[in-house]
Design a protein around this nucleic acid. Structure first.
Length: 569
RNA sequence: UGGGAUGUAGUGUAAUGGUAACACUGCAGAUUCUGGUUCUGCCUUUGGGGGUUCGAAUCCCUCCAUCCCAGCCA
């Protein structure tokens, strides 16, 4: 990588600690073939969520940045929890983010035979033994955080006996839980992961890929490092909770016969305020039917946010902004919103839609006329196309855009006030119609024919502009509006419940949460809709594209809401 | 109370012995055919205490705080 050394084009973007390690390894010729090899190793026991995006971007991104490669490895060593549905969803989600593992798709289960042979070798070398202790007994023998453990009484079985028993385990001649294969390391180690860790356990579950070929399955601490070694991984990047496992990792990669010894590095996983981000809880939401499925737009899963209409670019931008470090941190939800908003602002096509309609009648506008106005699809995009919007005597405007008695500072429509109907005309409210309960049901106004197109010859200004939809030409749509992603609670509406478990009580909390979608019916003019304080998005599950014209709600910088509070509306 | 890690504005992340900075948030103001967008400005930071040094966020000592580990899960 000489270019990098010579290149004084030195980007100002600072390196994160992993990039520093890699550059240092490269500079000191510690990387075989000078090729960086990383891997993204999800267990196919659920759908990928936002937190995984960080890991994906890190592993694939690092490989990309240093012209190396990144393997996709499905860490499928626990058939009881894993499923092909998850495997497929994982691949789809990674591709959606724009990453490609090329031919490097692996499964930990590909290595079952090799792993088995290594285990047999360990037994022959006296470095592993078959233990007959029950799970409970093993726990007792393991000791505690502060007390050392003691050797299993079966630790000194002869090599022949171990070999025979392990073979019998493999043949399925022993019930689950009766025997395990353990490494002989050190029961007095202060690191519990080194107290003779279990290497193999018996499970008669059918594996998604290997079916019933095996009834003994290798454990993570044995499988992962060896899989990394087999694949020639140079930098094995995982989350902080595996720090304590690094000695076990190094133990496994130093087994005789394993030539390549990769290194494990840990970084802090992504946490976002208020977001539910554990697979267990997400699975619970799905199982209990609280959401439609893993791709429900309220889910913080990759498939969920895709259905919401978030773009992969915005997610990658988000990840690049949060950085990488070893400090356990909690990122503000507002940063996620910022990234999505910024991205959608550039790409989302605007359409006018009235969510909470109130009728506006233009008394001096001809009854049967339909006039068309041209609107830009996306004002932020110079190349944006336009579309035509029908304008008629009777319209709908947003209920919040009219007030009979306006507070100070309100500059939308109120009796006597003139505002602009976006793209169309200036109108002045003249009178209103109320129902028996005193609610305003209709607002009457007059328009200024000279203001056609949204401006007047005398150049007079209006302070307010409102979106609208033709009451007679508009289209009715039904959409589900979503606010934030599924969360335990939101700022300012603390429930004090962090959803430790999805018990009936916390279910109530979920239902109270803002994330619950509301069904709405809106009058829409000629496919349109509009965005006031950000983006309004509807579920785009049935849409033909990932980025439907308007897709759900990212919520927004709601300064109008704050102003309303100040004005006391 | 064993071991492993981590402490920089409200939140993240830089600065790797040489003027503490960037983004988000928040607060002001300007612009605006939507109170959005855009633009401008402002606020607030090295966990505490010692030490080394001309000079410490950075090195040393110590204290404190937080997180992880006792699955036949990953």
């Amino acid at each position: 990588m000489d270019e990098r050394i010579e290149g004084e084009v030195k980007e100002k973007t600072p390196l994160n600690f992993l990039e520093r390690i890699i550059e240092d390894d490269l500079a000191n010729n510690r990387v075989p073939g000078n090729t960086i090899v990383t891997r993204f190793p999800p267990e196919p026991n659920g759908y990928l969520h936002i937190g995984h995006i960080k890991s994906i971007c890190l592993n694939f991104g690092l490989a990309q940045a240093y012209q190396g490669r990144c393997h996709l490895r499905l860490d499928d060593t626990n058939p009881e929890k894993e499923d092909v549905e998850y495997i497929e969803s994982i691949k789809r989600d990674i591709r959606w983010l724009g990453f490609d593992w090329g031919p490097y798709e692996y499964h930990a289960s590909d290595y079952y035979q090799q792993l088995y042979e290594i285990a047999v070798r360990l037994i022959k070398e006296g470095k592993a033994f078959v233990d007959s202790l029950s799970a409970e007994e093993m726990k007792e023998y393991r000791g505690t955080l502060t007390e050392v453990g003691k050797n299993s009484p079966y630790r000194d079985r002869s090599i022949e006996e171990n070999l025979a028993l392990f073979e019998e385990m493999r043949q399925g001649r022993h019930p689950e839980g009766s025997l395990v294969l353990r490494a002989k390391i050190d029961m007095s180690s202060p690191n519990i992961n080194l107290r003779d860790p279990v290497l193999y356990r018996i499970k008669f579950a059918s594996h998604p890929r290997t079916g019933d070929t095996w009834c003994i399955y290798p454990m993570y601490d044995f499988t992962h490092p060896i899989s990394d070694a087999i694949e020639g991984i140079t930098h094995s990047i995982c989350t902080l909770e595996f720090e304590d496992h690094r000695p076990a990792y190094d133990w496994a990669t130093s087994i005789d016969g394993i030539e390549h010894a990769p290194h494990q590095y840990e970084f802090a996983r992504l946490n976002i305020n208020y977001l539910v981000m554990s697979k267990r809880r997400l699975l619970n939401l799905v199982k209990l039917g609280i959401v439609d499925g893993w791709d429900d737009p309220r889910m913080p899963t990759i498939s969920g946010i895709r259905r919401r209409g978030y773009s992969p670019e915005s997610m990658k931008d988000f990840v690049s902004r949060i950085g990488v470090a070893k400090v356990e941190s909690v990122v503000d939800y507002s940063l996620l919103e910022f990234c999505v908003r910024e991205d959608l602002n550039k790409r989302a096509e605007r359409l006018m839609v009235v969510l909470d309609p109130i009728k506006l009648v233009i008394d001096n506008y001809p009854e049967d006329t339909v006039e068309y106005f041209e609107a830009v699809n996306n004002p932020e995009d110079p190349q944006s196309a336009v579309h035509q919007i029908p304008f008629t005597r009777e319209l709908y405007i947003e209920r919040e855009d009219f007030m009979e008695i306006p507070p100070k500072g309100y500059h939308r429509l109120y009796p006597g006030n003139e505002i602009r109907l976006k793209y169309a005309y200036y109108v002045t409210a003249t009178s209103l119609v109320k129902d028996d309960a005193g609610n305003v049901v209709e607002v009457h106004c007059t328009y200024d024919p000279l203001s056609r197109g949204g401006s007047t010859p005398d150049n007079r200004k209006v302070k307010g502009t409102s979106h609208w939809v033709s009451a007679t030409q508009g289209v009715n749509i039904e959409a589900r509006l979503y606010d934030k992603l599924f969360a335990t609670e939101y700022p300012g509406e603390s429930t004090g419940n962090y959803l430790d478990d999805l018990n009936p009580e916390s279910l109530q909390v979920i239902k109270d949460a803002k994330a619950e979608p509301e069904i709405l019916r809106a009058k829409v003019g000629d496919y349109l809709q509009f965005i006031r304080n950000g983006y309004f998005c509807v579920d785009c599950k049935d849409s033909t594209t990932d980025h439907p014209v308007f897709n759900r709600t990212v919520t927004l910088k709601d300064s109008w809401a704050k102003l309303k509070q100040k004005m006391g509306i």
